[in-house]
Each structure stands twice: as structure tokens, then as C-alpha cells.
């Protein structure tokens, strides 16, 4: 990711103040100047707060061990331990750092390192992110179930149901494989989605890197970033297409709890929500089901979506425990 080579004059002014405050070198007069500057314009105050936030963010990253310190300049002489502020403030931010570390440990112990197969699953409507022992991360979509089987030489996952995203840490000596029944996927280090389709079959979408998909009938198919392969239930007639970066993002949007319904019919959108909720959206009339919808919605809020659809398309929405019913207004 390139660092933007520009910052506005306002952003630089804010950075200057933030650094001076941070170094604790402000004179009384400078403090008054800073005060006047931030009061002059809300954007000044905001830019200053933002620069302070970034400075704190970077300090926290350093405290957490961003390996930046290692790639320093031609190894300067070790700094004399600085009394006071700088170290004190670093320790202060360690609070958050230690918290985050503790939390990631909790997530990691969910999968014991060399144990035999461990089953992980998510109930309908929830999404779960799990850190694996090797540093890879697994995100399970609604109703997904996997078996994790790590050994010293191999990293194996079986996808038993649903959909999961894999962010795989590179390790050439330990191949990472996902067995989705009719298709087996092997990678070195990458990010990809595997979904067992409701209609049968498996889809594999590659976000980064290279993935090999093996099926009994078709042998090995190599996929690159942006490729999607659909393996039908009978294993015959693999469909491979290239997705735009936007479409790849869209496919993984569920990981942030969102659903992009743009371009779908109301009927398809209802089916999509049904993956996440026990409260179905029922569409009374096929003509209504064919109406096109657009927008990004929260996975956890089918009622909000139904209401928005009703409002914008002038439909009748009836809510009951059994579900959300959309029909033409009489």
C-alpha cells in the first residue's frame, strides 16, 4: 500500500502541534497559540485530534511490537533510557495492547495446536472469526461448520457446511488444505472464500494469492486472485469466471456483517436474508418478488430491510413471529 505522498497544509500544521504536545515541549505561549488555533476553526480542532490519534495509534503499534524498530537506520547507538514521559506514555498504551493480546490468546486457544480434529461451527445469524494456531484466521459465516486438523507437517480444514473465509499465513513447509467434499483446495498463503452452496456444489472465490482446487473428475484447477470457480454437485462442468475487485469485495462483505443486495430481486434478497435469520421474509406475489433492490444492509436486521423495501416500493409489510410478509398494498 503506497503512502500518499501528500498531506494538506492543515494536516501538516496539525501534525506539528501533535508532535509538540507529544514531546511535552510546549511553552505557555505555545499552548495559548494552540488553543487559539483549534478554537478558530472546528476543522483545526478535528485535524489536531486526528493527528494526536494517529500518533497514539503509532505508539500503540510500536508497543505491540510492530517490527518497524528492527528496520531502523544503520543501527544507531542505543538510546539512553529516557526518564519520564516517553516511557511512561508507552506503558499507558500498553493497557490496550495487552488487552488485545489477551483477547487474541483467548481466540487462539479455541483451537488447540496439535490436537486431533476440532469442530467449530456458527449458529444461524452469527459470524465468527477464529485465530488458528499457525497465525492463519478463519471466518465462519452463518451456519458454517468446519473441522480443524493441524499436524506438524500439514494444516487441514474440512468444510462441512456453509461458507468460510480463509486468511492463510504463508508456510511453504506446511501446506494448508481445505476439503469441501467434492473439491479439495490447496494453498500456500492467501485469502479465499469457500462456500458449500444450498443447491449443492461448492464455490471458491480467491481474494489474494493462488489456490489449487482439485476435484476427482476435473483434476487440478489453478485459481488466481479474482477468480471464482463453481463446482456443481455432481462434479461435472466446472464454471470459472473472473470477478471484478468490487465483486470480490462484495462476496466477502458478510465478514463485516453486511449484505450487498444491489442488483438482486426482492425474492433473491429474501433468500439471502434467510441464510442468516430464522425469521423469513415471505413475498406473497411473484411479481413483487421480481422487483429489483439495491443497497447494503445489515445481515442482522431483516426487519430493517423489509421495512426499507416496503417504504420505497410502496408495499404492505406485515410482521408476525412467523416472519415478515411483503405484499402489494390494497
Amino acid at each position: 500500500m503506497p503512502v500518499q505522498d501528500s498531506a494538506s497544509a492543515l494536516e501538516e500544521a496539525a501534525a506539528r502541534w501533535a508532535l509538540r504536545v507529544d514531546a511535552g515541549t510546549l511553552s505557555a505561549q505555545e499552548e495559548a497559540e494552540l488553543d487559539a488555533w483549534t478554537k478558530a476553526d472546528v476543522r483545526h480542532a478535528g485535524a489536531f485530534a486526528r493527528a494526536m490519534a494517529a500518533s497514539a495509534y503509532l505508539d500503540r503499534a510500536v508497543a505491540l511490537g510492530a517490527p518497524g524498530a528492527a528496520m531502523a537506520v544503520a543501527q544507531p547507538a542505543p538510546a539512553e533510557p529516557k526518564p519520564g514521559r516517553s516511557q511512561l506514555s508507552r506503558r499507558m498504551w500498553m493497557g490496550g495492547a495487552a488487552g488485545a493480546l489477551a483477547a487474541s490468546l483467548v481466540a487462539a486457544v479455541a483451537v488447540k495446536p496439535w490436537s486431533s480434529a476440532e469442530r467449530l461451527s456458527t449458529p444461524r445469524g452469527s459470524i465468527r472469526r477464529v485465530a488458528l494456531a499457525d497465525g492463519s484466521a478463519l471466518t465462519l459465516n452463518t451456519g458454517a461448520s468446519v473441522e480443524v486438523n493441524f499436524a506438524p507437517q500439514t494444516r487441514g480444514i474440512r468444510l462441512l457446511a456453509g461458507e468460510a473465509n480463509f486468511d492463510v499465513t504463508r508456510d511453504r513447509t506446511r501446506p494448508f488444505t481445505v476439503d469441501a467434499g467434492i473439491a479439495q483446495i490447496q494453498v500456500v498463503g492467501t485469502s479465499f472464500l469457500v462456500r458449500i452452496l444450498e443447491v449443492g456444489g461448492v464455490s471458491v472465490t480467491v481474494r489474494e494469492g493462488i489456490v489449487d482446487v482439485r476435484t476427482d473428475l476435473a483434476g487440478v484447477t489453478r485459481l488466481l486472485a479474482g477468480d471464482r470457480l463453481i463446482v456443481p454437485a455432481n462434479g461435472q462442468g466446472l464454471v470459472r469466471d473472473r470477478l471484478t475487485p468490487a465483486a470480490v469485495d462484495k462476496a466477502g462483505l458478510w465478514q463485516s456483517g453486511e449484505l450487498d443486495l444491489t442488483g438482486m430481486t426482492l425474492g433473491d434478497a429474501a433468500a439471502e436474508f434467510a441464510r442468516y435469520s430464522d425469521r423469513p421474509i415471505v413475498i406473497a406475489d411473484p411479481a413483487v418478488a421480481r422487483l429489483k433492490v439495491a443497497g447494503i444492509y445489515s445481515i442482522s436486521d431483516p426487519a430493517g430491510f423489509a421495512q426499507a423495501a416496503a417504504d420505497s416500493m410502496d408495499l404492505q409489510l406485515d410482521q408476525s413471529d412467523a416472519g415478515l410478509r411483503l405484499s402489494r398494498r390494497r
Partner: peptide, 27 residues
Amino acid sequence: QIPEEAPSPERVAADRQELSHVTALIA
């Protein structure tokens, strides 16, 4: 509508990614 975000474990994993990104940004 404010897009919802998955609960905290998502952030935790993101933390580690952020660290390597910070390094890359500084570099």
C-alpha cells in the same frame, strides 16, 4: 444506514494485520 460490524474477534485478528501494515507504511 450504518453498516454493522462483526463483534470484537474481528478486531482482534485485524490488530495483527494492522501491525504488519504499520510496518509497511513506515517502510
